[in-house]
Design a protein around this nucleic acid. Sequence first.
DNA 1: CCACTGACTGGAC
DNA 2: AGTCCAGCCAGTG
Length: 125
Amino acid sequence: MLVREYRTHGVPNRPVKAPLAPAAAFSRAVQREVARIPRGKLSTYGDIARRAGYPGRPRQVGMTLKALPEGSKLPWHRVVNALGYVPTRGRWWGVLEQIRLLRREGIAVDDDGRLNLAKHRWSPR
DNA sequence: CCACTGACTGGAC
DNA sequence: AGTCCAGCCAGTG
């Protein structure tokens, strides 16, 4: 399975000895946290980054999700931005797909991708 | 090497 | 409530 991974050197409290080593740990941590989001619930890039142990790295979470393989079973669609809408930046059809998947889980999303984040935002126990 | 672009966020104003 | 901006860091040209 091809999953592009990103370096995490420079992460506060988590110095990486070999700067050129791919950060498999980052990718794995992110995927682990995304996998925990229950059906019908939402999370944000920032939340995932924090829970994965990399606070302040929401952008890298986005990069990791973007790099997921086509048939990934990960509920990547449950991750939206902190402003409460499905991110469009740098994507084309992924947006419509994400909206479709969210609606299928009972989350109301308007055609512009806006949704009620406060209502569905998930916090792990 | 420099500039710019990404599935971002929190704080400042 | 909107806009700006620094921080973020791998890729690309």
